[in-house]
Amino acid sequence: MTEDAQILIARLLAHQTLRREDKLVKRALSDEIFRTELDTRLKACGMKFMDNVYADYVTLALTRDSESKVFGTKETWQNNNFGLARDGVALLVVLWSLIILPKRERQEAHQLAEEDQNDMFGKEKPLPRAEDTSIGISYRALLADFGDKLGKKTRMDMNLGQLARVGFIERKGDMILEGPLLDLLMDTDTLKDRIINGALSDIFHIPAPRTPAIIAADTVNNVDTSDGEIAPDAE
């Protein structure tokens, strides 16, 4: 068991993410004794195992206690450690909102992306995988709706390229799709209501509350792998 935990950690450090169907990942998600050993080893290194039932992948993150010691020498670490400018961080939050929130609604409704919504027995099905429910958004639509606010075409293309390189998104023709990390880094329970009812209320056609919601930097998970990850804030 000790060797398996060591191998799983090494593979996550080397590959950044692994699919939930991976043999050792499935063991970490189902074997309490193995998971305890894994968590103990990671905690000793200032790291933690990250997964959620809505994502098809798992990854590693820094513990909160380790963040300042790892990134404390960089003035911008509390915003992000990919070197993203504010428009890049804002673009990440917009993409998460437009791709992940609708996907999770479909998953909770046990509805596939192209499935009949009138399936009366849908609730009896297992939770659908992300790849079966995540639809993505059109690049042209994103540019038309947010281009003026997010640096126009040149800046948006540059930031999309960076987000694709690190695994937040994937590009297929005109479509921008969910990448392995997009649904692992964001604290959905904290951010969902603030985004829907606050920052993006006009998009979701919901009146904003009287007191505008503010998304704090510490509501988003910091993730560190061999390539370095992000801790975005949505200023």
Rank of each mutant, 00 (worst) to 15 (best):
N79Q: 11
R104N: 15
L91T: 03
I99N: 03
A113S: 10
D132S: 15
R104A: 03
A61N: 11
L160Q: 01
S138R: 09
R20C: 10
R106E: 00
A90L: 01
E170A: 09
G122F: 12
D174H: 05
K23N: 04
P180S: 02
A14P: 02
D22S: 10
K125Q: 10
P212A: 05
A234D: 12
M1D: 01
D218V: 05
G46D: 03
V58R: 06
G147W: 06
T73W: 13
V25T: 00
V58G: 05
F82T: 03
P232L: 04
A217Q: 12
G179T: 01
R210N: 02
A144H: 12
A216K: 15
R19L: 11
R165W: 11
G228I: 10
A164Y: 03
M47S: 01
G83Q: 15
D183E: 08
T133P: 01
T59A: 11
L38M: 09
V166A: 02
L38K: 07
V94R: 06
R19A: 13
D4H: 05
F82E: 08
L95P: 05
P212Q: 08
A216M: 09
V166Q: 03
E21I: 10
G72Y: 03
F168M: 00
A231Y: 14
A231Q: 15
I206K: 12
D65R: 01
L200W: 12
D224R: 00
T40A: 15
D227R: 09
L60W: 03
L62V: 11
G179M: 05
D218S: 14
V58P: 07
E131W: 14
G122I: 10
C45T: 09
G167I: 04
E115A: 10
M120H: 11
A85N: 11
N221R: 11
W77H: 12
E235V: 11
D189N: 14
D4N: 14
N221S: 00
L200A: 04
M50N: 08
T219L: 13
I214R: 14
D202V: 01
K48N: 04
F146H: 06
V93D: 12
C45G: 04
T76S: 02
G179V: 04
N81V: 05
K69I: 07
G122L: 10
L92Y: 15
Q117S: 08
E21D: 12
R86S: 11
D189Q: 10
E37H: 07
L84N: 05
E67D: 14
I7K: 13
W77R: 06
R104M: 11
E32K: 05
R129L: 13
T17E: 02
K23S: 15
L91S: 09
N221G: 04
D227M: 12
I100Q: 12
F146V: 04
F34M: 06
D22F: 12
L200R: 02
S201T: 02
L38H: 09
R140F: 13
S68Y: 07
V93A: 10
P102I: 04
C45D: 13
R104L: 10
T2H: 08
L182N: 01
L13W: 00
G151S: 08
R35H: 14
R27G: 13
A44T: 01
A90T: 12
N81H: 13
A55R: 05
L91W: 09
